[in-house]
Every structure is written in C-alpha cells, then in structure tokens.
Amino acid sequence: MKILFTSRGDSWDSEIDPRFGRTEFFFIYDDDSEEVQTYDNRDIANQAHGAGPRTAQKMADYKVDVMVTGNGPGGNAAAVIEKMGVKVYAGAGGMTVKEAYQSFRDGELSEF
C-alpha cells in the first residue's frame, strides 16, 4: 500500500504539513516495497488561486492508496481526490511523518 504524507520536509523526522493544497512536500512510503519517494511542492506558493486542485492533480501522478494530512483538503481538492479514489486520513498535524505513520497503523487517525 502506498501512503502519501503532506510534510514540511523530505525525511521521516519532518513535520506533517497540516495544509493539503499548499503542502511543502509529499513524503510517499510504499510499505510493500519499503521504498520512499518525495516530491518538492514548494512552487505552489506562486499560485494565487486553486492550490488545492493543482496539488491534488500532482498527487495523482503517484497513484497512492492513502493520504495522511493535518486539516484535511478543502472542497475543490476533495472533489479531485474523491475522483482518484484515495482514502484521506486527517488529524496528523503537529506529528512527524514517522509518528503519523505509526498513528495511522494504530488506527488512531480518523478518515476524512
């Protein structure tokens, strides 16, 4: 299963970025292959409008099964994510990616 975390950096110790549309990085972990991929999304700061749909579209390239984030996506992004069939788990704001992964595994995060 491929899990995408919205994060402020590209390591397991990076903090979760609570925002979806304007997240600074994607941290993607495939727990079958144990491979990590990251994507630097910081260009999004230049988008005055529609950051949500834009980031959601970028996320589609990675074909993930689950997303773990902080506040949860806004309406526009949620519509795109729903189309992709990705399950969203929110409430990981303030955690590191490692902690968020553990919380997700332990079933402590709620489905958005």
Partner: peptide, 10 residues
C-alpha cells in the same frame, strides 16, 4: 488556465 479552475483528472 491561470487559476487552476480546469483540471484534467483521469
């Protein structure tokens, strides 16, 4: 589109 108001998805 400069505003991300049109998105191709699947």
């Amino acid at each position: 589109c400069n505003f991300n108001a049109v998105i191709r998805m699947v």
